[in-house]
Design a binder for these strands. Structure first.
Length: 332
DNA sequence: CTTATTTGACCATA
DNA sequence: TATGGTCAAATAAG
């Protein structure tokens, strides 16, 4: 606004433009996310986001900012061994281990629940322990296990696979149920709420772990923890969602709750901060948080912090997506 | 250093 | 035998 003298430095203007683009991108992604929600408040949230988008567009128009999209994908972070150099482990295994008797449940034992979501976020922290390519599907299947599996013995597992028809969505099959009493992963909002009565009204309250029996196709998720996305590789990138966030905002897992209002604020505000995101480079199915090194570990005193992901962490967001009617006590 | 993620190998069931 | 589910070492990043 203010087409006045135009004293704004070029670089600054460019930065602002970039911010706008990023913000718009984030808001768009958020809107896309909201569109999939069944929650009755979704429309409201969508409306809000739409408003944000509208304003952003307006601002961009005013500034003559194109939507060139800042899809800057830096080859920097090449997480995992995706790089290339792997000295082919020729150890222990082939040596002479014929006495290795593994005894774990074979074939899948019927999923307790199946869901098709756009995000891998489902309210729990998962540790990816494997990925396999299924011949039936063009996309590999990722295997996750509850982070507390190795420690509290939570047997909850899930398999994530891209939808053949809608690569942008994932088919998540759940096996077993959570027997863990999440420590610093989920119940953080409860105490927080007590400490801040002011916002307690709009906060999420995790009463119990989702132990729903009914909720067949709809409500199944229980609470929220983090939201992760980004990265696409399987050969063809079909993921159009890319989130950018500031790590400062969600650095600690202890404060992953906020109003939708604040959420949007965060998106808009953070969008410009981290333009290059930490997007990795390989792995297509990801979303669960990894845990310690396979099996060997067991010392982990506490679950990994959602700090490592490239997406952004939000507590309320997930609950919205979780379409659980018990978690929210917000009144639009 | 610790945590997180990747990837190949192993193995059990259909 | 083929398929797919899991383990486990290694690797990369924070």
């Amino acid at each position: 606004m203010a087409p006045s003298g135009g004293d704004v430095p070029v670089e600054r203007a460019a930065a602002a433009a970039n911010d706008l683009v990023e913000a718009r991108d984030g808001a768009a992604a958020l809107r896309a996310f909201l569109l999939e929600l069944d929650d009755q408040r979704a429309p409201w949230a969508q409306r809000v986001v739409d408003g944000v988008l509208s304003r952003l567009s307006s601002a961009m128009s005013a500034l003559d900012v194109g939507g060139a999209a800042a899809g800057g994908r830096s080859p920097a972070t090449g997480s995992g061994s995706g790089g290339a150099s792997r000295p082919q482990q020729s150890v222990s295994y082939s040596s002479g281990n014929t006495n290795k008797k593994r005894s774990f449940s074979r074939r899948s034992q019927r999923p307790s629940d199946k869901k098709i979501t756009a995000t891998l976020e489902d309210g729990h922290v998962w540790r990816k322990y494997g990925q396999k390519e299924i011949q039936n599907s063009p996309y590999p299947r990722s295997y996750y296990r509850c982070t507390h599996s190795s420690g509290q013995g939570c047997k909850a597992k899930r398999q994530v696979q891209r939808s053949e028809t809608d690569p942008s969505k994932h088919v998540i099959a759940y096996y077993g149920e959570h027997t863990c009493r999440d420590h610093s992963t989920i119940p953080l909002a409860v105490h927080a709420a007590g400490a801040a009565p002011d916002r307690a009204n709009n906060l999420i309250s995790f009463g119990h772990s989702g132990a729903n029996d009914n909720a067949a196709a709809t409500g199944a998720a229980s609470s929220s923890q983090y939201l992760a996305m980004g990265r696409s590789t399987i050969g063809e990138h079909q993921l159009s969602t890319s989130w950018c966030t500031s790590d400062d905002m969600f650095s600690s897992s202890a404060g992953s709750f906020m109003h939708v209002d604040e959420l949007i604020s965060a998106v808009v505000g953070s969008a410009g901060v981290t333009s290059t995101a930490t997007a990795g480079s390989s792995a297509l199915d990801r979303g669960g948080l990894g845990g310690m090194a396979g099996g060997g570990g067991g010392n982990a005193s506490f679950p990994p912090s959602p700090n490592g992901l490239a997406g952004f962490v939000v507590g309320s967001l997930g609950s919205i997506g979780g379409d659980d009617d018990d978690l929210f006590s917000m009144d639009p």
